[in-house]
Write a protein that binds this DNA or RNA. Structure first.
Lengths: 140, 140
DNA sequence: TAGTGACTTATGCGTTTGCATCTACTCTAA
DNA sequence: TTAGAGTAGATGCAAACGCATAAGTCACTA
């Protein structure tokens, strides 16, 4: 077992442990964590996002994302309008309700994240962000 | 946005990017990555594993894991026998076929992992393992 | 400008998931 | 020894998922 494999396994375990921990918290209202993630990704970009672009940031197959956006649109959280420049595409934006919901859930969730990572020193946080950043940049 | 939140977001992104990358590789045969993970977790422990113990290492709900083990047992990869010490419980072991399949997939997968993490220095690998280890230990 | 291949999103369909609940067993203590 | 609380895993069911593919659009070329 190489160092790389140990590191990856450790990363996966941390992801799994923390995900379960966050999921168990009673802050998600009528959203699943995956749905929240979609709203969060949309909230980060001010401009409208293409479906394919959003799909790059979310761990979901393209059809699954398509349908999830469908449901979020039905529920009034997301606005999907045709892209005038490319009629194949769609432009996604948060509705005011979607933005409000994202903020309402995001706030306590951000506190949970801070609490969960509070076992790390500021230097370790810095290192973690730098190293994982390097990993995701390496291949996109 | 605190350092902690940035670090967590960066970790999630790395997880998502690498997972997609690994999933896209043509090495999984008739298994999904989740199924492979179950076989892998079983392969790590020599002794038989309880369902609940296995569930702690896998990002799946208890019923989903129960049924996945069901299917893996049907397919001859996993042996589930009643725990003599606790008749509620089950003892899970890899069958020879399960172990062989795990190794067959694990080998190229381990190489992929090594390749994907090769952008990191040995020191960074060390730090990543240490930091993520700290994260998952903090709450179990 | 008609044809071909690439790209973007949607849909059909069988499988898998999570939630709630159930059954069966264990443990504690009266 | 037995009632009641707790734990382990299984099952019913609706919702969500991934794979394969369809439908519509773009871009390039003959």
């Amino acid at each position: 077992m190489t160092r790389a494999n140990e590191a990856w396994e450790s990363l996966m375990k941390a992801y799994s442990v923390l995900m379960k921990q966050f999921n168990a918290e009673d802050i998600w209202g009528d959203l699943t964590m995956r749905e929240y993630d979609v709203l969060y990704q949309l909230s980060k970009c001010d401009g409208p996002l293409r479906m394919s672009e959003l799909n790059r940031h979310v761990l979901l197959s393209q059809p699954a994302l398509s349908r999830m956006v469908d449901r979020l649109a039905d529920r009034g959280y997301v606005d999907r309008c045709p892209d005038p420049g490319d009629r194949r595409g769609v432009r996604l934006t948060l509705t005011p309700a979607g933005r409000a919901t994202q903020r309402q859930i995001g706030s306590p969730h951000a506190r949970s994240v801070t609490r969960a990572l509070s076992v790390l020193t500021p230097e370790e946080l810095e290192q973690l962000a730098a190293i994982t950043g390097k990993l995701s940049q390496s291949e996109e």
